[in-house]
Measured scan of single mutants.
Amino acid sequence: MQRVNMIMAESPGLITICLLGYLLSAECTVFLDHENANKILNRPKRYNSGKLEEFVQGNLERECMEEKCSFEEAREVFENTERTTEFWKQYVDGDQCESNPCLNGGSCKDDINSYECWCPFGFEGKNCELDVTCNIKNGRCEQFCKNSADNKVVCSCTEGYRLAENQKSCEPAVPFPCGRVSVSQTSKLTRAETVFPDVDYVNSTEAETILDNITQSTQSFNDFTRVVGGEDAKPGQFPWQVVLNGKVDAFCGGSIVNEKWIVTAAHCVETGVKITVVAGEHNIEETEHTEQKRNVIRIIPHHNYNAAINKYNHDIALLELDEPLVLNSYVTPICIADKEYTNIFLKFGSGYVSGWGRVFHKGRSALVLQYLRVPLVDRATCLRSTKFTIYNNMFCAGFHEGGRDSCQGDSGGPHVTEVEGTSFLTGIISWGEECAMKGKYGIYTKVSRYVNWIKEKTKLT
């Protein structure tokens, strides 16, 4: 034993070699072989497995989906700052455009905790909710729209109204504003409101030439003092309507412009014939205590009207009353817009006519005020429907199939267009061939041609 100890002390290297040989010859039971080890760690190889990531292109799944990435790591994937920024906006807080917040056709661009709407022409605001041009839906104005110097929408209202708090709607500024039905039992019968379409306001006024200088022999019209197929109006439903009495009662109609003036057809009036105007009328054979009678003290036909040349060209006249009318729910003026808007309103496509005229061709006159909704007829169809001249200051309205029309005794009465609950004068009943005849239409004086003249002559002093 002493000898062994001496050998170990003198030859430590020998001992180490012996131990190493023993270990190498022993069977290893701690580690699995290569094949079995792979069965336990069965993990798919990654895209760049075996390579240094710093030297390969980034992978979106590896960089940002398996674990949260930084902007720089995302930049490695896209290799483009702009594309990385677009991805980053949604990656950080989701897609803010998912709810489609942009209105009126706006395009949404996502941002971090926010979004941006790219608005089409005519709109602005956070969600493109603000109209900035009158060309689109009248700028959301209830009545009139004008573009300011910086191309912003400025709404306005006709006389007797003021802008509401929203700067879009119009509200009454006087007790009985024009064009409004205020009798409670008839307010439910107000005709369907007309909503502004998209309009090209630059070209809204037709490029028409008034044929002022045409000389033409007097034409022989049949029954051209021209509501057939209409309905009984309720008291106060058309408070701007008046009836004219002269040699015979209810020979023509008219509309209240203001307390002192009536507008009617020029062919209705004769110099030297006494005319009485009755406002607030409903049943011409009954006294309903809503009527107001006034005498006409002055007749002003349009300066281009000449019955000797043509009885229905420039067929418009103004009547001055001896005493002002007292405005109330049964006696209310009709609204008159400017030339541009009167023309736009007419193009809405349908209007209402009213009167006490004959209820059928050569038949009896109506006792109760009649009204009828009539569609506008395109000019080409209008011209083809008659052998008589249709001037540019006239328009056609009615039904091709016949059966409904204005008729004798309705002449001078109103053709009105309702705009968001307020009625505007767009025409004056003038003439036609018979009444409600198939293929024939009622012919009306186009008020847009005469609004400046009306307003100039009827100013209240």
Rank of each mutant, 00 (worst) to 15 (best):
T426W: 00
P235R: 09
N104H: 15
R298T: 05
V359K: 15
V296T: 03
A307K: 12
H314Y: 07
F31E: 15
S217F: 12
F224Q: 02
K152M: 11
T332F: 06
K260L: 08
S423A: 06
S182I: 08
N306V: 08
N100W: 07
F224D: 10
M65T: 06
E281P: 09
F424L: 01
K455H: 13
H303R: 07
G272Q: 06
E10G: 11
R449L: 11
V416S: 10
H314I: 01
H400G: 13
N222A: 05
C155F: 00
H289R: 05
G432H: 08
Y201E: 12
C108A: 01
V451I: 13
A317K: 00
A173C: 04
V30K: 14
R449S: 15
F388E: 14
C145L: 01
P239N: 01
I429N: 11
R3F: 09
F87K: 15
R191M: 10
T287K: 03
A337D: 01
G50D: 14
D322P: 00
C18G: 05
G272C: 05
N48S: 12
S148F: 07
A366S: 03
F348S: 15
S385I: 11
E165L: 07
P414N: 11
A307S: 12
L19E: 00
G427P: 00
P235Q: 06
V377F: 03
V228T: 12
T190D: 09
L367P: 13
A250D: 05
A436L: 10
K168E: 09
P239Y: 00
D338Q: 05
K440N: 14
K274C: 03
G349D: 13
L52G: 05
C268G: 00
P101E: 08
E401P: 14
C170D: 01
F360M: 13
S11L: 11
N5Q: 09
L321Y: 00
V269N: 00
S11E: 03
G13N: 07
S255C: 10
A380I: 13
K347L: 10
R373V: 06
P239F: 01
K457L: 14
L24V: 05
Y330Q: 12
E10T: 05
Y391H: 13
R46L: 05
T342M: 04
L20A: 03
G413P: 02
P177L: 01
D249M: 10
V326Y: 13
N222G: 13
V243M: 04
G106E: 03
V181T: 13
E340Q: 13
Y115I: 09
S70Q: 15
M6Q: 15
M65L: 05
S350A: 13
G106D: 03
N283P: 03
P177M: 01
C28F: 00
E53Y: 03
G106Q: 03
E67Y: 08
W261A: 01
R384E: 09
T290L: 06
N328Q: 02
T81I: 08
R191A: 13
P44A: 08
S217Q: 13
S448P: 02
T158K: 02
L23M: 08
F176Y: 10
T271E: 12
T194R: 07
V269S: 03
F224Y: 11
E286T: 08
S182E: 09
E193P: 09
H400Q: 07
Q237R: 08
N113R: 10
L321P: 00
T215I: 07
E285V: 11
G280S: 01
E259L: 03
T422F: 03
L372G: 15
D223F: 12
C97W: 02
R384A: 14
R298N: 13
N304A: 09
F123D: 07
I390Y: 13
G409E: 13
Q237Y: 12
F360S: 06
H34N: 10
F238S: 04
K188F: 14
D315W: 01
Q90S: 14
D223Q: 10
W453S: 01
F221L: 11
R46F: 06
G363M: 13
G403P: 03
L130C: 11
A397M: 01
L130K: 07
E67R: 14
W240L: 00
R140I: 12
G229E: 10
H267N: 04
